[in-house]
């Protein structure tokens, strides 16, 4: 964090002739602008499509939406197979975020505060597990859930995602916790706080931004994951990302409807990013994201 705050725009304008510096600045601003455009255009296009009738989507290449209408959104909010998909997805994402934080917080605290045998190895080993491809876990999860009756429930997807998210959550949280001086823990314990009480009432508020960033990554992983979500649900818990692929593969393409569903999946992400945008940079600076 200090590295970011004390940073002074590097070198460019220190010793070089002014004209070259200005030209370089214009050049880099143009490139950045193009990159921005490249990043923004597909998102704009989705929003544009979501506001048009199927016929107009197919025939009109205009830049602005033609005869804008909210019909696509109306369809989604009135058809249970669409809006229930949102409910399913939100419920397993929320479950996953809560479970992952509950498991990762104490583990991260242990890693940041205590030296124990092989802690460094365990730490990296934990992180390495995150890298196993989901395909390896598909079959076992599928068989296990079918056997115990969890198949096609929000819990099925939430627990499967937890396996991938907990290592990442420990990794990010540990970075934030290590930034808090150990003396604070010691003082509080001497003052007669029990460890759990200290942890919840003193320590957790101090790393609130870290918890926010971690929750964001738990949320994001679960929100956009498809392979497990698609395999472990069929009808009763089918999430929106899966509903979108089913629609795409059966009755031709209803671009407007798909785009509207897409826009609605972007909104929660935008909301969450808005809340944590100022802390994310810290996560990156710690090398933990």
């Amino acid at each position: 964090m200090t590295a970011i705050q004390t940073f002074v725009p590097a070198a460019a304008e220190l010793t070089r002739p002014k004209r070259t510096a200005t030209r370089a600045r214009i050049f880099s601003a143009t490139l950045l602008g193009l990159f921005l455009l490249f990043q923004a255009l597909p998102i704009y296009w989705i929003v544009r499509m979501s506001l048009m009738t199927p016929n107009n989507v197919l025939t009109r290449p205009d830049f602005l939406p033609v005869e804008p209408t909210l019909d696509n959104y109306r369809t989604i909010f009135t058809d249970p197979s669409w809006y229930m998909s949102y409910v399913h997805q939100i419920s397993y994402v929320a479950l996953n975020t809560v479970i992952s934080l509950a498991v990762a917080l104490p583990a991260a605290y242990a890693f940041s505060r205590y030296r124990f045998l092989g802690d460094k190895h365990v730490f990296f080993w934990l992180f390495s597990n995150r890298m196993a491809p989901p395909a390896v876990f598909l079959l076992p999860f599928f068989q296990l859930y079918s056997a115990v009756g969890l198949f096609d429930t929000p819990w099925a997807v939430a627990l499967a995602h937890t396996l991938f998210v907990v290592p990442l959550a420990v990794w990010i949280l540990e970075g934030f916790m290590s930034g808090i001086p150990r003396e604070i823990d010691e003082t509080a314990l001497v003052d007669g706080f029990s460890l759990p009480r200290f942890f919840v009432t003193v320590f957790m508020p101090m790393i609130a931004s870290g918890i926010g960033v971690t929750a964001f990554f738990c949320f994001m992983f679960s929100w956009i994951e498809l392979l497990l979500a698609r395999t472990l649900t069929s009808v009763d818990a089918r999430p929106i990302v899966v509903t979108m692929t089913r629609t795409a593969s059966t009755s031709g393409m209803d671009w407007g409807l798909l785009a509207a569903a897409g826009v609605l999946t972007i909104l929660p992400g935008i909301a969450v990013i808005w809340f944590v945008r100022n802390y994310i940079a810290k996560g990156f600076a710690l090398g933990r994201v």
Binding site: Q39, A40, M220, I224, I270, I273
Partner: peptide, 17 residues
């Protein structure tokens, strides 16, 4: 903000676009 937003996009949405 802009470089973070694509992270919030499901590949399904990206793929559709």
């Amino acid at each position: 903000a802009v470089y973070l937003y694509p992270m919030a996009l499901s590949f399904i949405v990206t793929g559709t676009a």
